[in-house]
Nucleic acid binder design. Structure first.
Lengths: 132, 132
DNA sequence: CTTGACCTTACAGTTACTGGAGCCCTTATC
DNA sequence: GATAAGGGCTCCAGTAACTGTAAGGTCAAG
């Protein structure tokens, strides 16, 4: 199977698949003409990585999770720890973004959005006025 | 005022302030010994940028917002548009992260986290089983 | 005169790709 | 045999917004 087919089947861009090989996440074989040849295990790994990435895991987490997946002597505690740390990070980001959204929403609603220069958004950013 | 004082006063790392100069957001003067000399307007700009960044605006948005702030002929509509687009992006990210959190939370709860290898998290990532 | 805190520049590294240039392989068509 | 289309290949540069590090200049105190 060539990289184009794998790309269509996995939904990952060919460039990304080459990148994953470069950083050692997969090691497809090569045919005589130098083309990458992907086997079932490569497809499976790519699907695994794709799903982990979709859950927001970083590349190094993906590497760790794959290693654990392949290690039948693993403890589920190791896996859970990676997931919990990631979950904590996600929660942190949600809190951060929610705070931004709250302030921004208030400012956007306060702004007339017309052709006059008066703007509560700029006023807030320049913070010339007292706290509200 | 030297960069160290500005850093303490603005809460921005000195490195970041130098970076902001490099990309043209601020243009502090220089004293004879080559040190950067910051004036009131520089401090004000840095505070503006700091608050915009805290709301998640990208650097180019900050540049645009500062330009509008300094342009007394601006329309508030221009400012509002930048803010609304950013707000949309924030909402998109929150939705994405919330989806991740939901799935991850379910998986983490399903995982025993003990010394046995059985792990619903890995099972889900490898997707050998049917959808649940 | 040295120590320590401060400042300077320049360069590399971070994350996870993405884009582009320049070139090779294969197959079909003229 | 030439050529064009549609793959594939490598290598290099760029993205966002800094951050780290090295090597060195400046300044006040003791």
């Amino acid at each position: 199977m060539n990289i184009g087919d794998v790309s269509r089947q996995s939904g990952l861009p060919a460039k990304t698949i080459r990148y994953y090989e470069e950083i050692g996440l997969i090691t497809p074989q090569r045919s005589a003409n130098g083309y990458r040849v992907f086997r079932e295990q490569d497809l499976h790994k790519l699907a695994f990585i794709g799903r982990a990435r979709a859950l927001g895991f970083g590349i190094e987490d993906c590497r760790g999770l794959m290693k654990l997946y392949e290690d039948t002597d693993r403890s589920s505690a190791e896996v859970k720890q990676i997931a919990e740390e990631h979950l904590t990070e996600i929660d942190r980001k949600i809190v951060e973004l929610t705070g931004m959204r709250q302030t921004l929403t208030r400012l956007v609603h306060a702004c007339a959005g017309d052709d006059r220069p008066d703007c509560p958004i700029l006023a807030d950013l320049s913070a010339q006025q007292a706290e509200g």
